[in-house]
Design a protein around this nucleic acid. Sequence first.
RNA 1: UGCCCUAUAGCUCAAUUGGCAGAGUGUCGGAUUCUGGUUCCGAAGGUUCUAGGUUCGACUCCUAGUAGGGCAACCA
Length: 776
Amino acid sequence: MSSSDSASSSKRESRHFIQQIIDSDRSSRRVTGDIVTRFPPEPNGYPHIGHAKAICLNFSLANEYQGRCHLRFDDTNPETEDMEYVRAMRRDIRWLGFEWGEHEYYASDYFEQLYDLAVQLIKDGKAYVDSQTGEEIRTNRGTVTEAGVASPFRDRSPEENLEMFATMRSGDFPDGAHVLRAKIDMASPNMLMRDPVLYRIKHAAHYRRGNDWPIYPLYDFAHPLSDAIEGITHSLCTLEFDVHRPLYDWLVDALFPAPRPHQYESARLNLDYTVTSKRKLLQLVKEKFVDGWDDPRMPTISGMRRRGYTPEALRRFCDMIGVAKADNRVDMAQLEFAVRDDLNARAPRVMCVLEPLKVILTNVPEGHLEELEASYWPHDIPKEGTRMVPFTREILIEQSDFMEVPSKKFHRLSPGGEVRLRYGYIIRCDNVVKDASGNVIELHCSFDPETRSGASSERRVKGTIHWVSATESVPVEVRLYDRLFSVPNPDDVAEGETFLSHINPDSKTIVTGRIEPAAASADALDRYQFERQGLFFLDEKELEKGNRVWNRTITLRDTWEKTKQSEKAKQSASTPAKSESPKQIEPQPDRDPLEGLDADALARTHALDTSFGIGVDDAAILAVRPKVESFFRDATATGESPAAIANWLINELRPLLSEDGIESIPFSASQFAELVGLHSDETLSSRLAKEVLSEMMKTGESAGAIVEKRGLKQISDESLLAAHVSDVLAAHPDRVEAYKAGKVGLIGFFMGQVMAKTGGQANPGTVKALLEKALA
RNA sequence: UGCCCUAUAGCUCAAUUGGCAGAGUGUCGGAUUCUGGUUCCGAAGGUUCUAGGUUCGACUCCUAGUAGGGCAACCA
């Protein structure tokens, strides 16, 4: 079976839009050298999960294309930045598994160059020193609906600007006295282009440059030019910067020759039950809602590391969530999957009881100590290693593994019931001991010596539970973490609330558990699965202080918890079935195509419709676009059908137009009419006509010439087409079968095959009829 | 209210550029299991935001709308 398309079934891994851009930049040779990206944090906070996404994006892209990714600190605001954050950033990026080698840069190292570029801009008449107050600048910028007004200082001479800018630099002006602004367009619909501020005076010490500079460039100036200086090819940022792109382009075009960097925007990460604004994270730390930036509940990289997340899991997560331009909110389950999946294969299993219940095995002699061999790994993980687990008369099991009145699906211990001790014996519960208030405080059980783990006993029980020896186990502090916020979107707040109103009061629980001896001496970076509980990681900070404290990284998936919930739900059957009413989408009434047209357009619409009979819909489209309308009128002068011309003009030609519009096309209205004619007289199918049209756009040749040159002609000969149809059907018997079984969408596949075989020249109407007949 | 961006399964994303609407995750079943984990198998889940148009054929092109987000710091 070697069907022609079996090769194409090896589906290429899907590429996100930035990869597609880079691919096409390389194939079009817009970029001929290395692909160079950059990660440009401002050192004013600890990196978090959102940064992780950006880090993975930029560094992975560089790795994929064997280019490089620069780490550049965007440190142009002396007031908030600090070396501590630089160190945190470097450490966390490395921990994530990325390396930038010698390519560590600082915008503050470019201050001299940036200053020179600003001078160049002034000399070119593209920037000026404005002496309005901040207040005036703001007011005069206008609003989103009204144009701004020009500063009275806008037309200072280059000489004066140069001199004043030099004085700004020398430090002789006080803060805020003047700014340097780009001279662009005070009426631009894009607020960023209304003469944006490039430099401000700020007599402040910079954490790296000290008091060298009394003026500091702004992001909008420093960022694009730093990219250009470093030879960045693809400058990736988040969506809110898309309005900055015209300014980015303006500055780079003004000061750097090609090849130059280009900016692309993608959506930032929003994670359920999490906040990722530096301001809010800082607030959580400062107001002690958490114990520092690296609190294991924090979405900071340092917090997640301390909690026990791995770089691999985080990278996997970033990979899973993809890169796109739509706003998003990622389900926690996504992150949890990545973490569990990674940890499952790398965490050895041990036993630890978190909420102990004492069990006395009445038929084990006092003082009995037996060592049971236990594997660190389950049968399905190909790793080896065992330890010995002490078995004694008194043991501890999990309180939740005993139920005095078991529900139907509960298969652990209950009075008279049996359960297996993991790696040990089957025990039976003979007696339940309670305290005065009726709480179960102790169980008396007996064990079956024939059922030791590994022994070929026929006996089977439904449940296996973890346990430790009451006398040989070691007490340990275990910290159980839950989500920091109790709602999916903590930023979604009612009047008078803040995100802090949604803090989950139970996000941290500390218990004293009992761990088996083999794991009691665990060391830094050790991580374990406590069987049936979850994944746990030794807390670095506590270990430094000499304490062994376990952080729960994540619980295991718990289907028992789910069945418990659903059992409960069933019992309280009063809860109405959540039969959500089907999505009600308001149907939209037919609209009036003439709605919203002004009097002039309305008149022209009617004129077009009455003189050409093209219908008001098409007429209205032409009428509001005077240049298109006149092109249309010119084309109709050839005598070709006006309706056909309008149709082709509106639906096919316009999408091919560049920004310059219809004036820049390389052929005339009558040549366009000729093409429409070739379609009308069925020389060309619409598919062929479209091909010819795009060729005309490229070369400016006439439709007739292109048809001649390429030998294009619609094939309508039925017997010829029938042969192609039966070829195609014979080549894909499986699909024919599927079609006959009801998958009628395959008609498109068959059509595509026949069209491809005929070079697009088959008459589609005829082919379709033949196909339907053949498949009936 | 002007300009810009976005809209495909519960969630996050694909769909070779106009030719079979898919994946991961989640959910629900089943098998395996000395972890109610893992693994394996299966199922459900779609008005591709809406309405109209072009086309043999539209997630993709055209028109008009709707919803969400961004932009009026001398922050980044």
